[in-house]
Design a protein around this nucleic acid. Structure first.
Length: 414
RNA sequence: GCGGGUGUAGCUCAGUUGGUUAGAGCACCAGAUUGUGGAUCUGGGGGCCGGGGGUUCAAAUCCCCUCACUCGCCCCA
């Protein structure tokens, strides 16, 4: 293996993959705009505090997955591992809380120091949607519905399942957490080693353990729904009712939890079985406490993130590369005229591939290989007679046209 | 961070119990066709056999280490 290899967990997005990525992003952008979301972009790095304080000191992302470094001025900087904290920071530092509610769409690279797997990279890309400043369940419904519609337009909705759960408000969540600690604490010895650690750090996580022994205990564990207070329960039932009203199908998963500390109330994931161990393609929830935690005024919010690589692997309908017109100068004397013609055609909106090298045979082969729709030959003959040879590469038909007639003839091919 | 699998040409892969100068298909380049693509034929360029060490008269092949990829665990998009 050559020394010139990309850093582990990173990869080049070559043109074919790039089209699929762009299809995901543009589909999401177009639909989110229809839902009233405005596109924003935030820096790919922030002060480390932005993530450390908000994601939870004990979360895996903070404890072992962040790309953190000191810059030349001595500031602690972290490449963003997720989008939400950066957007919340932008809302605060940009004074945007004067304009609530806000609906944001964003996309871009994220960085997590993890062991790479299928659908899991150290630099990956996400699309992201957030509604900031709406306390009611309408926002949860709207944001989930947007996710479902994006998946539908990408042709993956029927291969995913929407799972939802409620973590309740802070009061409910703490009460439930205490109940879980009491229950699992009494069975500590029966828990897997990993879950014993979870008991200390994040007891909710035990609920979605894959260990068989854990699952047996989980089946008898206290249920979240019994610990939701009245507000939390009615909030969740409104979300569910809203999804029903819109015909968004889902299943309730009482074991669905979120890894990051700032979530409350609604948690949801669109999951697929087609990506190995990585099930989630879009996942998110409500994070009413985040902006306050960061030092802003208390502001409710809900949103999700979707993995572009994961979506691109599943999506159908990415547009094919455009079929260019191959412009082939014949002989040295035609070079300048051909370059001018290419310029004019491009200005007129045509996709033009200029054949730089080789004899006519070679350039024709190239035109064929790149899928050109037509070839234009321009040589001494043509220049003397004031025409251009147009060859339809699908039918093989060939004709000589004046410059004035060329654009119309090309347009008729597409 | 932990466990399993795999590394031979740009890609997909052969390579016998260790034995001359490591092969095929596809792709690429050139020619047959000096102004005409797709098909065919002919020829050509391409390899530190992932890297390092060891065993041996001899290593792509056996052993050790390492790196990368990959699948899973953890966790997540």
């Amino acid at each position: 293996m050559s020394r010139l290899q990309p850093v582990r967990g990173t990869h080049d997005i070559l043109p074919e993959d790039g089209r699929r990525h762009r299809h995901v992003v543009e589909t999401a952008r177009e639909l989110s705009e229809r839902y009233g979301f405005a596109e924003i972009s935030t820096p790919i790095f922030e002060f480390t505090d932005v993530f450390q304080r908000t994601l939870g000191e004990t979360s895996d992302v903070v404890t072992k997955e962040m790309y953190t470094f000191q810059d030349r001025g001595g500031d602690e900087i972290t490449l963003r591992p997720e989008y939400t904290a950066g957007i919340a920071r932008a809302v605060i530092s940009g004074g945007l809380s004067q304009q609530l509610p806000l609906r944001f769409f964003a996309h871009g690279p994220m960085f997590r120091y993890e062991r790479p797997q299928k659908g899991r990279l150290r630099q990956f890309h996400q699309i992201d949607a957030e509604i900031i400043g709406v306390a009611g369940p309408q926002a949860d419904i709207e944001v989930i519905c947007l996710g479902a519609e994006i998946l539908d337009n990408l042709g993956v909705l029927d291969r995913t399942e929407l799972q939802i759960n409620s973590l309740g408000d802070a009061e409910s969540r703490h009460a439930y957490r205490d109940a879980l600690v009491a229950y699992f604490g009494a069975h500590r010895d029966a828990l897997s080693t990993e879950s014993q650690q979870r008991l200390e750090r994040n007891p909710l996580r035990i609920l979605d353990s894959k260990d068989e022994g854990d699952r047996a205990l989980v089946a008898e564990a206290p249920r979240m729904e019994d610990y939701l207070n009245e507000d939390s329960a009615s909030f969740f039932s409104e979300v569910v009712a809203g999804l029903n009203a819109l015909g968004v199908s889902y299943s309730q998963n009482p074991h669905l939890v979120r890894g990051l500390d700032y979530y409350s109330h609604t948690a949801f994931e669109f999951v697929t079985g087609e990506l190995g161990a990585q099930g989630a393609v879009i996942a998110g929830g409500r994070y009413d406490g985040l902006i306050e935690t960061m030092g802003g005024t208390p502001t409710p919010a809900v949103g999700w993130a979707g993995g572009i690589e994961r979506l691109a692997m599943l999506a159908t309908g990415a547009p094919e590369a455009p079929r260019p017109i191959a412009l082939i100068p014949v002989g040295d004397t035609a070079q300048d005229a051909a370059m001018l013609l290419a310029y004019e055609l491009r200005r007129a909106g045509f996709v033009v591939d200029f054949g730089y090298r080789g004899n006519v045979t070679r350039r024709m082969k190239r035109a064929d290989r790149i899928g050109a729709r037509a070839a234009l030959l321009l040589g001494e003959d043509e220049i003397e007679r004031g025409v251009i040879t147009l060859r339809d590469l699908d039918s093989g038909e060939q004709q000589k046209l004046t410059r004035d007639a060329l654009d119309a003839a090309l347009n008729s091919l597409y």
